[in-house]
Amino acid sequence: MNKKRGKMRLSWNRKCCICMLPAIMGTLIFSLIPFFRVLYYSMINNQFEKSFALISNYRRVLENEYFRIAFKNSIMLILICVPILVVLAIVISLILVFGKMKQKGIQISFILPMVIPTASIAVIWRQFFSDIENIFPVYLLFIWKNIGICIILLTAVFASVDKEIFEAAYMEGAGPMKIHLHMTLPISAPTIFFTVLLSIVNSFRIFKESYLYYGTNYPPDYGYTLQYYMNNHFLKLNYQNLSVSAVFNTLFAGMIIAVGLIFIRRFQR
């Protein structure tokens, strides 16, 4: 009797595994399995003939002028915005932690841009910068939206840095600039690196904001990013081009993420 019951029941470990099942099933159905179909689409010439055309597909997309502009703009966004964002966040959080300010309220107010629906904000932005004809407003929007989480992550780390080592350094006559450059930043390097990675990832996601800001599928050339390229092909339902750029995007983003994660691992050791 007892034995039978034991057989009927699943072990605790099994049950824990079953807990994961719904989520994994969902991910499989909606993301992973279709992703292989995307791979497949990117290899054939069209849905009816289904002949192998991997190379010509990729060549067509990669040689496309708009795709190049889009790719260049996406890279520019990462190269220009992310450093500005992270440096700004570091400076602000240093001031918040080591300055003599009441930091609690300020810190909380930095969460606000994260949760506020960007649709409303992009509208205001359009009103403000209606006569500026460059990418700058979008960059500003990006920084505005993402600086909050960076600051919160960084202040948490800076606040946990041991204060005693500062006093020792201070005795030796080092200025505050020097202390922070040589001590605070190296100590919190993993987190700083994590914020950089997070900002890069978020820069892939700026599409929605920029889309609402420009209010069109065809923004000026300087604002045209990879996401626009994909979105426009999505509206045309051009599966081949779309699949190729999706695969390309996946590889590109995956590379950055992988490098980032490996670096963070290194730092932590």
Partner: peptide, 30 residues
Amino acid sequence: AKMRGKKIIFMIYLILMMMPLQVTLLPNYI
């Protein structure tokens, strides 16, 4: 849970989370 491949599942989710929305939209759509 103690299970083989747990790390891999976690990594897949981590990468999925960081993917730009446009990339995940296409598989979702299909």
